[in-house]
Amino acid sequence: MASKKAAQESLTLSSVLDLNEASVLHGKLTELRGRNLKIDASQVERLGAQCVQIIVAAARAWQADKKAFVVEKSSDAFEKTLQLIGLDPNQLTAKEN
């Protein structure tokens, strides 16, 4: 029997990811758990620490689930905020096993 590759889901992040958006982001990621996921962060203008924590936790959860979690496109603001916090954007990638 041929194995079916899991479908890839996409999530476009909001332009402002602050404390108010944290629970919304968490809910969206919770709904998508268990599926391969591509994140589009190209529209992010502001990224708060709470949302960074949620994204990092999601990347780790996807890695534990052996599912793909890839930030495919990211804005300068997204990347600069990660750098200020001390994170390498490559740390937000989990490969499907």
Rank of each mutant, 00 (worst) to 15 (best):
K95R: 10
Q8G: 01
E72P: 00
L32Q: 05
L82M: 11
A49M: 09
I39T: 12
G48N: 09
M1Y: 02
G48R: 03
A77V: 02
D88N: 15
G27W: 04
A68F: 02
A2E: 06
E45L: 15
R60M: 04
D88F: 01
T12P: 11
A68E: 05
E45P: 14
A68Y: 07
Q63K: 14
L13N: 06
R60A: 06
L11I: 09
A49N: 13
E9W: 05
N36Q: 12
L17R: 05
L37V: 05
S23L: 04
L17V: 10
A57E: 04
S75Y: 02
A59Q: 09
Q50W: 01
L37K: 03
V71Y: 04
L84F: 06
V70K: 10
Q8N: 01
L19E: 09
L11M: 10
L87A: 08
L87P: 07
D76G: 07
K28Q: 14
A41G: 15
E45T: 14
L84V: 03
S74K: 06
E9T: 11
G86C: 08
K38M: 13
V71F: 07
A94I: 03
Q50G: 06
N97K: 06
D65C: 04
Q50M: 13
N90V: 05
K28I: 05
I39K: 08
H26K: 15
S14R: 08
V44L: 11
L37W: 05
S42L: 10
K67Q: 13
A49E: 07
A64M: 11
G48Y: 02
S23Y: 08
A94S: 14
S42F: 04
Q8H: 00
D40T: 12
L92W: 01
K28T: 10
M1R: 07
L17N: 08
S75R: 02
S75H: 03
L13I: 04
K80Y: 00
L11W: 07
Q91E: 09
A57F: 00
K80P: 00
R33M: 13
L29P: 12
L32M: 11
D76A: 09
L92N: 02
Q91F: 01
T12F: 06
M1G: 15
E79T: 14
A57S: 13
F69V: 06
D40R: 08
W62A: 03
S15Y: 08
L25S: 14
L19A: 14
K66I: 05
T12Q: 15
L84I: 01
S75L: 02
D65F: 01
S15P: 13
S15L: 06
A57H: 06
V44D: 11
E72C: 01
S42Y: 00
A61T: 11
L92K: 00
V24L: 14
V70T: 11
A22N: 12
N97R: 04
E31S: 14
S42D: 12
K4P: 02
E79L: 04
E96C: 09
W62E: 00
Q83Y: 01
T12D: 12
L47Q: 03
G48I: 01
Q53C: 07
G86K: 04
K4H: 10
E9D: 12
S74E: 03
I39P: 06
Q8C: 01
S14P: 11
A41C: 05
R46Q: 14
A49K: 08
K95W: 07
N97G: 10
A6K: 10
E72S: 02
K28V: 08
S3G: 09
S74L: 01
N90E: 10
L82V: 07
L32I: 10
D18L: 10
A6T: 10
E96R: 07
M1E: 05
